[in-house]
Structure formats: structure tokens, C-alpha cells
Design a protein around this nucleic acid. Structure first.
Lengths: 232, 232
DNA sequence: TTATTAAATGTCATTTTGACAAATAATAAT
DNA sequence: ATTATTATTTGTCAAAATGACATTTAATAA
């Protein structure tokens, strides 16, 4: 068997930046690293790419193994490959970002696994270049969410307009005018208004909406321009 | 020294999808592969990531070594890591796409190096998963060019509006209304009209323009929405 | 019955868009 | 010298989208 002679070989890992929304705040999922170096330090959910899997496969496997999460929105971010990013030996890491509804997995994550949610502004110090990954992922999330309806991935089946707006405000770290936001969302035709109201947040209650799945899929790649005066 | 025991190590390569514009058509730069397997077959410009360089560094080095190109627009596309994508041994490749003005490097590329330009629709069969890379790069180029003024990277210092429009039409594979295009471009404030005309293309001649470098840098991340009715 | 509070909705001026055709400048032809 | 040719350049207008702004409504609590 031929080989590419004399070329160096490296470890290849994946690291997942998992963003979640609990109905009020945008949060980041972290775990305590299970191996040396930096054992027990806060870290993104990561692992090595196995011999018979692609990085995408690895990301899905690692995510399932460490958090039980499966079938969630997962997108490649970029590769991190500075020669000295891992002090033990050279490891390139493929960053992925994931989006989930926190409440859907709350119990599972804290009981079975030892993953914890943090406000991004209150995250602990992370190992290696993971803080940079989080920063890049936030930027990309903002970018994509401004153009495509990916934030619905972070909401439960039934959600209210105030919740949706809060999510957009959290992601973009800005305040949005309720009237204009409501108009914009309506114009996409992606939402179906339900009879039921969520009365937990106010006396009047807010109507629940659900996603029009068909239109969601059809419009996923369309440019929707959700955010006014957007500057990245 | 500690090591991550038992984990497999892989080769890591970079492959560059180099797009060029000659004033009329959008083209793709290819070279003949210099090593087995698939030696002498048409290929993207690629090479292995060295022990002391990042993938970004490697892409720049490989590009310079194989084409002499230096200091050009280069952006990470994504990683390609299917286990069997290279028949010899497992190699992950980081794709990059680059943008250049063909005429600026024409002589250099064909004489010193043996790189050739192809219309994308008339490209030869490529090795491995390079055709997929080209397809993904085109898509990403379209996406970015719709929102950010990166296409100016493919034009000479002086260019005309008809040239600029042709470039946009090539990239998006569509026809654009001249009046609306001109209005949109003007409104960005990125162009400075010159006294001189290019008379090679018509009797009347077309005025040359140049980029307002300061505004270009300032607006590079702004959302400019160049393409009407855009669907990706 | 009234007060309270968050949710839902309406207006208007301005800007942007998309669709459409006529005028212009330079050279070539007569 | 006049006219024809051809690509370049520019203009209009109705429709849609945007941004800024405040009031009404529905339900519960007082």
C-alpha cells in the first residue's frame, strides 16, 4: 500500500458550541473536561474524530455521548488549527455550533450528564481556544439568524411572540420595536396562531404560535432580513 | 511527555478553489496533480499542513508555491473529512476559496507554473471530492457576494460599470437590470468615477471607476444586498 | 367597579424596490 | 459633412418595505 511519505499526522477533534434558550435568556452549555490536561476544567463538548467517521459524524456522536442530545440543529463553524492550541500534542479541532430548547432537555442534562448552562456573559474560563470558538460561534449565530429562521430551533413547539422577540433580542443583544417585529414576523408567513394562551407571564396572556413546518423548510434558505439596521 | 493514547492520527491537507474574472467570464484555476495517486489529473491547488503552520498558513504557502499568488483574498470554506475521500490513506482537507483578477497574473500562471483557467461549466473531471468543493465554493461565493462587496477583489484597479455588472451576472448566473444595478452600486458610495474611459468595448466608451478603499474596508461587513430577488 | 399590567395592534412619512425606455457619446459608414 | 450604428448612461413611477411612534385590549387583582 502506498503512503504519503514523510508527512506529519495529527489528531483531529470536534468541539460543539451548544446554544440554548429557556424562554428568557440565551445560554451556553459546558461540561467539565474528563481527561488530562486541564481535567475538570470547564470546556466545550468535544472529542476525537474516529477512524471510520467524518467530522460531522463525530460531532453528532460526541454530542450524544456527552449530553444525550440527538437530532438537533448542528452546523460546522470552522477549523481551529494553530500548531500550539493543544499543549500535549498537535490537535486540530473542527468547531460546530448547535441550537436547542433548554427546557426540552433540562432534566436529562443535569441529572444523567453533568453539563451546565451558563449565561454567555457569566461563563467560566474555558480551556485552550474554546473562548475564541464561542465568540466566533456567537457571531455566526447572529449572522445566520439575521437572514434565516434558525432561531426557531431554540423554541418549544408552542411559543409566544414575546418569547420569540426576547430570543431575537438576546441573540442580537439589542432591543427591537414590538410593533415592527410583529409585522415582520407575520409577513414571513411562518407562524400559525393557536387558540391557546400562555398565561404564566401576564394577566392578559399571550397567544401561542407554532411553526408552519412546510413553509419553514421551504423558506429556510431564503433571505428574510429579520433584524433592522443590522451591522455585523 | 503525555500523549492522547490510542487515538488515530490523520493527514491534514488544504485545497484552494481559486476563482478569477477576466473582464468577461468567471473562471476556475486548476493544476495537474504532481503525486500519486491520480498523478497528472486535474486538481485544485492543494498540499499538506506542515508541522509548524496553521491551515490558514498552509493555504497561503501552498497557493504561493503552486501559483506564485500572494496576498490575495482567501477564506476558509469548510472541512472535508469523509473517511474514504483519499484512497491512499485518511486525509482531511480544509477547503479555501480565493478570488483574483485573472489579467493581473495571466502570464505568471501559464509560464512559470502550469496552472490553467477553466470556465466552471467546462472544467475537466477533478480528483477525489474536488468537484464537490468547487460546487460548495461557488455557492458560498454567491452567498457572500450578495451581501458583501467581495467581488471587487476580482477586478483590476480601474474597471467599468459594465464589467462590474458582468461579474455579478456571472457569479449569480442571472441577468440584472442595468438601471437598477447602477443605482444600487451608486448608493453604496463605494465607487469613485474617473475621468478616463475604456474605449475597447464600444464607440462611446465606458467610464472607469475605482474603489474607495476606505469605504470598502469600513463597509466590508455591512449588509449591502446587491442581488434583487435573491434565492440561494 | 376600578386599577393594574403585559399583549396586541395602527398610522404615516420616508426609503427602497422593481419594472420599464429614452437619450447620449463616440466612432464608422455613406 | 451627414447619417447610421452601438454600447453606455440615465429617469420615472407605482408598489412595497421600513422606521418611528402610542393607544387599545384582555385578563386578573385590588
Amino acid at each position: 500500500m502506498i503512503e504519503y511519505s514523510g508527512q506529519p499526522h495529527y489528531l483531529v477533534a470536534v468541539d460543539c458550541i451548544v446554544f440554548g434558550f429557556d424562554g428568557e435568556r440565551l445560554k451556553l452549555l459546558l461540561v467539565k473536561r474528563g481527561l488530562e490536561p486541564e481535567i475538570n476544567k470547564w470546556s466545550l463538548i468535544g472529542g476525537f474524530v474516529g477512524a471510520n467517521e467524518s467530522p460531522d459524524d463525530a460531532a453528532n456522536r460526541v454530542l450524544k455521548k456527552n449530553t444525550g442530545l440527538e437530532g438537533i440543529y448542528l452546523e460546522q463553524l470552522q477549523i481551529y488549527g494553530e500548531p500550539d492550541r493543544d499543549p500535549i500534542e498537535r490537535t486540530l479541532s473542527v468547531g460546530y455550533f448547535a441550537l436547542i430548547d433548554i427546557n426540552k432537555y433540562q432534566a436529562q442534562l443535569s441529572d444523567e450528564y453533568h453539563a451546565e448552562w451558563f449565561l454567555i456573559s457569566e461563563s467560566p474560563k474555558l480551556i485552550f481556544d474554546h473562548a475564541q470558538m464561542v465568540s466566533d460561534a456567537r457571531k455566526k449565530l447572529r449572522y445566520k439568524a439575521a437572514l434565516h429562521p434558525i432561531l426557531f430551533e431554540m423554541l418549544p413547539k408552542k411559543f409566544t411572540l414575546p418569547q420569540l422577540q426576547m430570543l431575537f433580542e438576546e441573540v442580537n443583544d439589542t432591543k427591537i420595536d414590538t410593533r415592527n417585529f410583529s409585522r415582520k414576523i407575520s409577513s414571513t408567513g411562518l407562524l400559525i396562531k393557536l387558540e391557546e394562551k400562555d398565561k404564566s407571564g401576564s394577566k392578559k396572556g399571550a397567544f401561542y404560535f407554532k411553526l408552519d413546518k412546510k413553509k419553514y423548510k421551504a423558506n429556510f434558505q431564503a433571505f428574510l432580513n429579520f433584524i433592522p439596521n443590522l451591522k455585523i
